[in-house]
Write a protein that binds this DNA or RNA. Sequence first.
DNA 1: TGGAATACCAACTAGTTTAGTTGGAAAGGA
DNA 2: TCCTTTCCAACTAAACTAGTTGGTATTCCA
Lengths: 145, 145
Amino acid sequence: MKLSTKGKYGLIAMADLAIAYIKNPNNSYLVLKTIAIKRDISEAYLERIISKLKKANLIITQRGSLGGYSLAKHPKEIKVSEVLYELEGKLDVGGCGDSNDKSCLIKSNCFSQIVCEEINIKIRESIENMTIEDVLKSYLKKSKE
Amino acid sequence: MKLSTKGKYGLIAMADLAIAYIKNPNNSYLVLKTIAIKRDISEAYLERIISKLKKANLIITQRGSLGGYSLAKHPKEIKVSEVLYELEGKLDVGGCGDSNDKSCLIKSNCFSQIVCEEINIKIRESIENMTIEDVLKSYLKKSKE
DNA sequence: TGGAATACCAACTAGTTTAGTTGGAAAGGA
DNA sequence: TCCTTTCCAACTAAACTAGTTGGTATTCCA
């Protein structure tokens, strides 16, 4: 039930990209290595994570020297749920109603399903109403303290 | 991030035990095999799951023939969080503050930590305010429809 | 008192997922 | 042409999941 490193590293990378974006929206390309070293994350692994976010059109890239990664839009236009969905899949506790869940034969009315639905609603509530900008503000505020 | 079968089967077993308990609080022992067959769950696996709930004092048992499992207290006194905690561990998305999380060196102020905390609060909110009786009521209501 | 029924328990296992690593190809600037 | 960067696919060790196997300990009942 834990958030995997994929989701975690993805969020951290988005934060660094968001800081660069706000500083200079027109030219905010960051080199992967910079983020990887700063955050002590395996560069190769982070690259695989960030490429997923590119496919989801949350990030744009430039190749070659002077290349790098940048947010595709303003941090306030990127929901945390979008980032996590791409990296973790649907962020919920699942449930018997899932089409790919063959483990439960009860389907239509399962006790655990009722519990799952309740939890899933709460999770969705929180991450769909949270943008990268929102989290960044808390983050920067905390950093100052 | 999905609820594993452990948590799911555990909740389902608790539901069956709760139904028996409400019917006759004094003698509500259910044989494991009955639940396993009814819910189409491996008996041996379910036994391992249910034994964890016994250790957590949510269930009492009687050995020998005429033996079985019963809730240790009224369903309204058992929180969903207690059941899931025993089977899934702390039900949250984790976070860098976790003492057993060595993957994040940032610790004190991590971007992803802020997101995790927000989600964790919501999850806790839902399962700590939900008793087995509450869920059972929804379950039985749905069954009638 | 012996057997059937039940709970209890630990060791094993196949398959999946996680968290990466390795090794290179393609693109672009100097 | 060389260096820097993104891009991409195949591989891997370790952990976790979802069980299975094979037994032991209790208790009831005929």
